[in-house]
Design a protein around this nucleic acid. Structure first.
Length: 110
DNA sequence: GAATTGACGTTCT
DNA sequence: AAGAACGCCAATT
């Protein structure tokens, strides 16, 4: 396996700004394993190593697919709501606006 | 070691 | 436009 992969996922997710969200695919793309977007979710499932704001990561349409994997039933929604991200019917409101592309990190490093 | 599964995404029908 | 199928790769059984 590739521990570096998980590491990158964690690093990226940790960098997600407050009140913003991103997608598994975006992270996968950023890392370079675009086609293995499933692995991103898998990595987050093993996030017990460190605290990861996994609630800020949703699928491509802003749907909280991983909601069920959280401790509480609406833990994910609650956390997002706490950050000012409204969730309706298991999906992020104005997801397109709140979307944060990891590629932005590269620009900041210029 | 083979078969199954999964917090996804794209493509073909 | 909606639904089914497939690809991807690692972990679990």
């Amino acid at each position: 396996m590739d521990p570096d992969f998980y590491d990158k996922v964690y690093q990226v997710v940790k960098q997600i700004p407050f009140g913003r969200v991103t997608t598994y695919g975006a992270i996968a793309k950023f890392i370079g394993v675009k086609k293995a977007s499933r692995m991103v979710g898998w990595a987050l499932n093993n996030c017990k190593r460190d605290y990861i704001p996994a609630h800020r990561v949703v699928n491509r349409i802003g749907l909280l697919t991983g909601k069920a994997s959280f401790p509480g039933e609406n833990m994910m929604e609650d956390l997002l709501a706490s950050e000012g991200v409204n969730v309706e019917n298991n999906k992020v409101v104005d997801f397109k606006q709140l979307f944060w592309d990891p590629q932005i990190l590269l620009k900041e490093f210029e």
